[in-house]
């Protein structure tokens, strides 16, 4: 149950500085908290509330709106099997039943070893590659039952390199100070960008 650690707090301040208003950074910061702890803790939400200058209730309001933020621990690998139309037409239900059987958990459950949490998900923007699933939001395409078995085996053995739940992009945006234009609160901007020719700034 933790607040952001010192390194992440620094990162958080860097992210906040990219936005004209601090609250805009809330979703990226919640991801950062989830990356640190695997899920979102109350302490983290209180910390983020301090960082962006809102109440913890407002942080919870935002956090709980978005499905990717988990308020309770999940497995190391979150397996989301898509069940929307294109996948449903091509065997999503069967794949989901197979997954429940193989992992030994019902939808929403986590395996005893804490490795896998199984969820039924909505459309993952891979409709031509149905049925599809995601492991920690990385796609697997045209998944057959035997593909699924192999995936689970590879994840268990470490043969597949997928970062733990909470980590999304392994590359962070970095805006070098000497290249950054900088964010200014909107109420402090009174004119057009300096580079815009005056006749254009109508």
């Amino acid at each position: 149950m933790s607040r952001l650690n010192a390194g992440n707090e620094m990162l958080a301040r860097e992210i906040i500085a990219r936005y004209p208003l601090p609250k805009s950074a809330l979703i990226p910061l919640l991801h950062l908290a989830q990356e640190q702890d695997g899920h979102i803790t109350n302490d983290a939400m209180e910390h983020l509330a301090e960082l962006v200058g809102v109440t913890p209730a407002e942080v919870l309001g935002t956090c709980s709106f978005y499905e990717m933020f988990k308020l309770a621990p999940t497995g190391r690998y979150l397996v989301n099997i898509c069940g929307t139309m294109s996948c449903q037409l091509l065997g999503a239900d069967e794949l989901l039943h197979h997954a429940e059987h193989v992992l030994g958990v019902a939808v929403g459950g986590t395996t005893d070893d804490g490795r896998f949490t199984l969820e039924k998900a909505e459309c993952q923007a891979a409709c031509t590659e149905a049925p599809c699933l995601q492991v920690n939001y990385r796609h697997e395409y045209r998944v057959t039952p035997s593909d699924f078995d192999r995936l689970v085996a590879d994840l268990r053995s470490g043969a597949r390199d997928i970062p733990e739940h909470g980590t999304l992009s392994r590359v962070r945006q970095h805006i070098p100070a000497n290249r950054s234009v900088g964010a200014v609160p909107p109420q402090q901007v009174t004119g057009p960008p300096e580079w815009l020719p005056t006749e254009e700034a109508k």
């Binding site: 109350n42 939400m45 209180e46 809102v54 109440t55 913890p56 209730a57 407002e58 942080v59 919870l60 309001g61 709980s64 709106f65 978005y66 499905e67």
Partner: peptide, 21 residues
């Protein structure tokens, strides 16, 4: 005093406070 807020989404939306606040 935004100490009460919509929590969760869609059909599960509720009004509530942050735990212990």
């Amino acid at each position: 005093d935004p100490l009460i807020h919509f929590i969760a989404r869609g059909n599960e939306t509720q009004v509530n406070t942050f735990p212990d606040h």
